[in-house]
Design a protein around this nucleic acid. Structure first.
Length: 163
DNA sequence: GCCAACGTTGGC
DNA sequence: GCCAACGTTGGC
């Protein structure tokens, strides 16, 4: 069996609803990334993300927004059961168990940065000009990250932590 | 299938 | 709180 090349992603979360501190406290530092209700993001969760892929955890709608750590995918796409739960804010009455519409993956915390890499810093960093999260109006909550962008951001993280 | 109106996201 | 940029909905 040949391992597929690892891919890299950025997941956005509003820390008021789920923060990296919440993930750090979760059992096994693992959570199901539930509640994504956007078709482009759904397609990525369902079709593209594989076990072993790595993820930047990004805090949005906060001041400042930015990348706060690194996660790893421990379970690939599977149906998001919250879509079937009428009690959930993520309930979707059109969802059907035999034909699931929404998907989730499981992520495990690998590293929490001691200092956030702010969006401002990302935007100022050479090589990240085309990174999706740096683009105006890039609302997608599950974003692809290139290998080059991944390396540059990780180097930034090391530099910030030792400065 | 077009597109206007409406709703949401998210940086600022 | 503003508002630009997206996404979704629904009339036609």
């Amino acid at each position: 069996m040949t391992a597929l090349p690892k891919k890299y992603w950025l997941f956005k979360s509003e820390p008021e609803s789920f923060s990296i501190a919440d993930l750090a406290k979760a059992p096994n530092q693992t959570t199901s990334w539930e509640g994504v209700r956007n078709y482009r993001a759904r397609n990525i969760l369902r079709d593209e993300i594989k076990v072993g892929d790595e993820v930047f955890f990004h805090h949005s709608s906060t001041n400042p927004p930015g990348i706060v750590g690194v996660c790893s995918i421990v379970k690939a796409g599977y149906p998001d059961s919250l879509a079937l739960n009428p009690q959930s804010e993520y309930f979707d009455p059109a969802d059907a168990k035999d034909n699931p519409r929404w998907y989730t993956v499981d992520v495990k915390l690998m590293r929490k940065f001691s200092k956030m890499i702010s969006l401002t810093t990302l935007k100022e960093t050479k090589g990240l000009e085309k990174m999706m999260v740096c683009q105006r109006g890039a609302r997608l909550s599950i974003q692809p990250v290139t290998f080059d962008e991944w390396r540059i951001v990780n180097r930034l993280a090391v530099r910030l932590e030792t400065s």
